[in-house]
Design a protein around this nucleic acid. Structure first.
Length: 476
RNA sequence: UCCUCAGUAGCUCAGCUGGUUAGAGCACAUGACUGUUAAUCAUGGGGUCCCUGGUUCGAGCCCAGGCUGAGGAGCCA
């Protein structure tokens, strides 16, 4: 008999119809009520077993986590708590689950504990909800760009370029690490390596995306990215998924419009397609908040927060205005900032938090940063001291998007390379695009997991990627 | 990498000023009940108190070093 997914039984209940359900046991109550989930939805279905017709040796094996196949008839539920249920006629156990070894129980587990059980945490409602939302967001990313005529560009994961300049890189080599060949200067001889040169895992596909944008017009990347930074925070991963659109002929303002429309589209997509999961995560967050001090609690429920972001225009200010706001704030005058504020500083987390969470209380896009604190490829403004950079900050997460209009002028870019000590021979191919039909263009990078965090309300980035890679952690 | 906090049963946690045999809830086992909603009730089994060393008559508790985790910072997305 063909299996029917639980979501179909619940949503299009055909009373009296015989169905086959397969799934994993959530609970077995009263020797009679079997609650099953199959991942098709957050919701479970209740199967009512007749104890007299179900062999005791089967009933004794219905522990949380057991996988079962049940054939039965759909009927309106006699009990409260569900509209329909299935009267079980035959039960088959597909896979036993020893309760003395299975770590997932029908109780609240800490996220830290479940992180150590990453292979099994999908079985919990929280993580199944998170990863369904993650799917819908990933789909939304592709839909947004596809609907607007962008091409999905696959940039390399292994790169020979070491000029991406976005952080420490993981080395890729096939050299025998126990017998590393050295050249006459005592340096590693990468001429004997797989690529004949040193290679790394990519930290950004941006430079390659720019090359493609200067022909295809509108492209985006969406793939894994690697940073070998020893970052131990709730917002950083060593392996994360990044989205990097790049558009020829766009300036920094077009770029801001694109970034804002993109985030709104994705969040709206999950509101429309995963509201059930979001509502569950909202309740989870509210439960969680009860054990937190007042000032750490969310003031607006998750779904409402997302709707607010979708519906209201983002704040847009320049770096210079941001500095003014900070310096004129009571917070600053009362000397509550740990780091001092003056024009030219790189904004600290506490400054960004103040702007986003206290002052504006909505997403903020800051533009026009001092050239000295931003990357070499960002376009120098007419004032000669700021660049056409933009950061989008959101409450609770901080920086979610970083982007810029790119420096398209060959001479200026060459000068920047010198200032940033980037040898011309390392990125000759990037520089050549500025020689052959250069044009204004702009793009940004968005950390996918940060968007998933924002959409789910999860506060640790390790809980929104199936198998997090962080320092000292690469199990599974 | 730096700062702060934490580590006690499978899980979540309590354990007083250093003092007898380290406790509770959940989970599990046995029994009762049988339209339950993380069912309920009764009974029971279950411990390398993170590790190493030290102080002490005596350490889960104090001290030192280490390991692991969390929060914050830096780096960034």
């Amino acid at each position: 008999m063909k299996r029917t997914e639980i979501i179909h039984i619940l949503d299009q209940a055909e009373i009296g119809k015989e169905v086959n359900i397969k799934g994993w046991v959530k609970t077995f109550r009263n020797d009679q009520f079997l609650t099953i989930n199959d991942g098709s939805t957050l919701r479970n279905i209740q199967v009512v077993l007749n104890p007299e017709q179900t062999p005791e040796d089967l009933r004794k094996r219905l522990y949380t986590g057991t996988s079962v196949s049940v054939i039965g008839v759909v009927q309106e539920s006699l009990g409260k708590g569900q509209n329909v249920e299935v009267i079980g006629q035959s039960l088959t156990i597909l896979g036993d689950c020893d309760p003395n070894e299975f770590p997932i129980q029908m109780k609240k587990h800490s996220l830290e504990f479940l992180r150590e059980k990453a292979h099994l945490r999908f079985r919990t409602s929280t993580f199944s909800a998170v990863f369904r939302v993650r799917h819908h967001l990933a789909f939304a990313v592709n839909k947004f760009f596809n609907d607007r005529g962008f091409y999905y560009l696959h940039t390399p994961i292994i790169t020979g370029s070491d000029a991406e300049g976005a952080g420490e890189m993981f080395k890729v080599t096939t050299l025998d690490l126990n017998q590393i060949p050295k050249d006459e200067n005592g340096q590693v001889d990468h001429s004997q390596d797989f690529f004949g040169k040193s290679a790394n895992l990519t930290v950004s596909g941006q430079l390659e995306a720019e090359l493609a944008a200067l022909a295809l017009g509108k492209v985006y990347t969406f793939g894994p990215t690697f940073r070998a930074e020893n970052s131990n925070t709730s917002r950083h991963l060593a392996e994360f998924w990044m989205i990097e659109p790049e558009v020829a002929f766009n300036d920094i303002y077009d770029n801001m419009d694109l970034a804002e429309a993109f985030l709104k589209f994705c969040l709206n997509h999950v509101l429309e397609n995963a509201l059930e999961d979001l509502t569950f995560l909202q309740e989870r967050e509210q439960q969680d908040d009860k054990s937190k001090p007042q000032e750490e609690r969310q003031t607006i429920p998750l779904v409402e927060r997302l709707k607010f972001v979708v519906d209201s225009p983002f704040e847009r200010i320049t770096y210079t205005e941001a500095i003014d706001i900070l310096m004129n704030s009571n917070h600053y005058k009362k000397k509550k900032f740990k780091y001092d504020v003056s024009w030219g500083i790189d904004l600290q987390s506490e400054h960004e938090r103040y702007l986003v969470e206290k002052h504006f209380q909505k997403p903020v896009i800051i533009t026009g940063y001092p050239a000295a604190i931003k990357a070499f490829y960002m376009r120098l403004n007419e004032d000669g001291k700021t660049v056409a950079a933009m950061d989008m900050l959101v409450p609770g997460i901080g920086e979610i998007i970083g982007g810029s209009q790119r420096e398209e002028r060959y001479d200026v870019l060459l000068e920047k390379c010198k200032q940033f000590n980037i040898p011309e021979e390392h990125i000759w191919w990037y520089l050549e695009t500025r020689k052959f039909g250069t044009c204004p263009h702009a793009g940004f990078g968005l950390g996918f997991e940060r968007m998933v965090m924002y959409a789910t309300g999860m506060s640790n980035i390790r809980d929104v990627i199936p198998f997090p890679r962080t320092p000292l952690n690469a199990e599974f």
